[in-house]
Design a protein around this nucleic acid. Sequence first.
DNA 1: GCATTTTAGTTACAATTGAAACCACCCGCA
DNA 2: TGCGGGTGGTTTCAATTGTAACTAAAATGC
Lengths: 151, 151
Amino acid sequence: MPGHALLELESFLPYRLSVLSNTLSQAIARVYDKRFDLSVTEWRAMAVLGYRADISAREVAERTAMDKVAISRAVARLLKKDLIARSTARHDKRQSVLRLSAEGWKIYDQVVPLALDHEKRLLAHLDAQEREWLARILDTLWKAEQLEVKR
Amino acid sequence: MPGHALLELESFLPYRLSVLSNTLSQAIARVYDKRFDLSVTEWRAMAVLGYRADISAREVAERTAMDKVAISRAVARLLKKDLIARSTARHDKRQSVLRLSAEGWKIYDQVVPLALDHEKRLLAHLDAQEREWLARILDTLWKAEQLEVKR
DNA sequence: GCATTTTAGTTACAATTGAAACCACCCGCA
DNA sequence: TGCGGGTGGTTTCAATTGTAACTAAAATGC
């Protein structure tokens, strides 16, 4: 009498990760959406450009783990708002070269502390040891999942 | 000379969680989408109904952490496919009472092992100790985030 | 050097989603 | 009993998103 398969959502890792991650992202997104009218995609693009300037849209896509269409649209919106600037790569005219504008940097410099602060408040609930374990485990899982995807 | 604020996406917890979680969910979703033509929302709804039958749409929404509009639509599609059945609560005519149909159970019983298997393969990369830490840490973070959201 | 394939980025169209309005019903209270 | 406010669920409309097709420029291969 095996009955039915049993899946307990509350203890199912993919589900737990997804709920936690969505709640977290949304909470942070609410802040920069309300204050600076930025979508998650737009902010992600700005975040990588603040970290590494003069890269192509493709590289932004790679680093944000978003697809190129999403990036293309985010770039278009950010250009219209003058938060980023675009030029063309000399060695490859297909590639764009993107960077934050002065206005973009102003917003970046305001959003980053807010984002870090939220993370900090969250991590404050963990002790140093737990934080280390978490970092290491997420790393392992990420690499493991990469292998899965390639199967 | 403070220069600019610095946010390293690769080590920013919300970002890492989001990328890991999305990749993971999509990998699993691909399976049941291709084989059974189920969206993530639909499968989530089925998953809670497999775990706990005869609950209202509102309760499904709560347990899946999705909003009521999404659930309403998922329920509509699942009804059309005859994967769930719906009746009305006797004590409150607004509430629906949902449960998997025989056909729904058939699919549920096929998807659950696939989902569990993926999770298992992933967790196989962690040792018992790491798995315990992870479970505990996710729990703490979830509770912490709940507090944040209520602020 | 030219044809073929690949890559960066955009566009068009359909499908999905979210916010707000909405309906039907329940509850508290006078 | 009947009115005001709240809740479960659906619908509508606009905005966002995903897929596929497309353009332009490079890279590859002969």
